[in-house]
């Protein structure tokens, strides 16, 4: 187990290194010039050149990347070009909000998705099953900004149950989490349904019934833990999908997370911030996957981590 985690962490570091390399070179290959953004339109060629030297952007790319890496190893994510603040500080200030949003979204996905999937599997072939699967299909295919605006209009503007935007209370969390989680619930309900349908056909379910157990117990005790296994692996992958989603959802709801930070930075070619957010997201994805892999053996004793 410890050996497994250790090995996975080493692989994770390699993955992060790869991500940093690719992102770094992609960003600097962009035609947009960050120095122009900083200097403004009216700046003279001399000013532009000075700023370029100041930021070290006149050096060869490999040298710049090496500098960035040495900083990274010491925990320094660099300084924002425009905000004149450490990227680390900026991200640290906004990360909790984003993590909270993700946790809310995962919760929403699991509760909605698993419930829908299980009910559909138990009522297989009926109208309930079909309506649930149509609903999940809509959930999967609806764009997040549409879902977000729709939820805002109905539950915040018309019904006034939740605040329109912002951050601070639990009520603020509900609509953004739902928006972010609804696509995943669609996926989960479909996965859960097919997994549950398979499990319900398994020999050990027949054994459980032959013992004279109640239907409730057969489902909760015997079918569910087996059916949920493939879904858990999915959660790890999901965190990656969330990273795309939070940029949209945070702007729709004015949620002060790293998604907004990234969005502003992209518009202004503030490369250190983009790099920082990308690396933090990559970390989250890698750790999320590791966590999902560590949870699986707790449910399935056949899986041994070596």
């Amino acid at each position: 187990m410890a050996a497994y985690v250790f090995r996975r962490l080493i692989v994770s570091v390699l993955i992060l290194l790869g991500v940093s390399f690719i992102t770094f070179f992609l960003l600097y290959a962009l035609p947009a010039d960050p120095v122009r953004q900083i200097a403004g339109r009216s700046a003279t060629a001399q000013t532009v050149e000075n700023i370029r030297q100041q930021l070290g952007l006149d050096q060869p790319l490999l040298v710049q990347y090496w500098r960035y890496l040495t900083g990274l190893v010491q925990g320094d994510l660099g300084r924002s070009y425009l905000q004149r603040t450490d990227v680390g500080t900026l991200i640290a200030a906004r990360l909790p909000a984003s993590l909270l949003l993700m946790a809310g979204a995962i919760g929403c996905e699991l509760v909605l998705g698993l419930t829908m999937g299980v009910i559909a599997a138990l009522k297989r072939g009926t109208a309930t099953d079909q309506s649930l699967m149509i609903a999940s299909f809509v959930g999967v295919s609806a764009p997040q900004f549409v879902v977000g605006l729709l939820l805002l209009y109905v539950f915040a503007v018309q019904l006034g149950w939740f605040p329109i935007g912002g951050y601070g209370t639990w009520a603020h969390l509900v609509l953004p989490s739902l928006t972010l989680g609804i696509m995943g619930s669609g996926w989960y309900s479909r996965m859960m349904r097919s997994s549950m349908v398979d499990v319900l056909r398994a020999d050990y379910i027949r054994t459980a019934r032959a013992k004279g157990l109640t239907r409730r117990r057969v489902i909760l005790r015997h079918a569910l833990p087996n059916a949920i296994l493939p879904v858990i692996a999915m959660i790890g992958i999901d965190i990656g999908i969330f990273m795309g989603g939070i940029v949209v959802v945070e702007s729709v709801f004015g949620w002060p997370g790293i998604g907004q930070l990234a969005w502003q930075a992209i518009q202004r070619v503030d490369i250190p911030i983009i790099m920082g957010v990308t690396l933090v997201s990559a970390c989250a994805i890698v750790l999320g996957n590791l966590l999902a892999d560590l949870v699986t053996p707790l449910i399935d004793p056949r899986i041994k981590l070596r």
Binding site: A202, D203, Y204, R206, T207, A208, R209, A210, K211, G212, L213, T214, H222, P225, N226, I299, D300, P301, R302
Partner: peptide, 22 residues
């Protein structure tokens, strides 16, 4: 259900898959 397992019980062909793995 009250009889099943108590007065009539059954064993199946596939011992590998007839027990719940988890």
């Amino acid at each position: 259900r009250a009889l099943r397992g108590a007065r009539v019980a059954m064993i199946f062909q596939e011992p590998m898959t007839s027990l719940n793995p988890v």
